[in-house]
Amino acid sequence: MAAINLNVNGKTVSVDVDPATPLLWVLRDHLNLVGTKFGCGIAQCGACTVHLNGSAVRSCSLPVSSVKNNAIVTIEGLSETGDHPLQQAWEELDVSQCGYCQAGQIMSAAALLKRNPKPTDQDIDNAMSGNICRCGTHVRIRKAIHSAAKTQSKN
């Protein structure tokens, strides 16, 4: 065990954990931020996607000791009141079926829009192919990303 300081959703927090623990389980079990989901444990499905300094990373395969003071943002910290354009578009277009993968999808999409405010279908294919949706909501996910991009460009 070791005391580790983390910067999560704009706050500094301290946890006492095995340094090899993946960030995912620190978020879920120690910080009670359960919006980030466990899907595969080997960075294949994207359910655990969070932002590390604004980039999408798979928290299931990231030892907490490697995070240092890089800024972590989880789905809980993506926006103050759940009104990020992607969250709004996801609701508006009723994207979810079971809903389990969607936090990870939104985090991947948010990182995409940050570096590419007007993504093409090809850009979406590239950025979103690391996230699995077993229910098959892909058509609506794509639409929601385009829709959020439009909203962002108006603001």
Partner: peptide, 21 residues
Amino acid sequence: VKDVDAHHIVTGKPLFGIDTR
């Protein structure tokens, strides 16, 4: 009609069995 849990899903609220504490 949109899913009744839509807002909770997109904001990462505890909804699933795995979130049980």
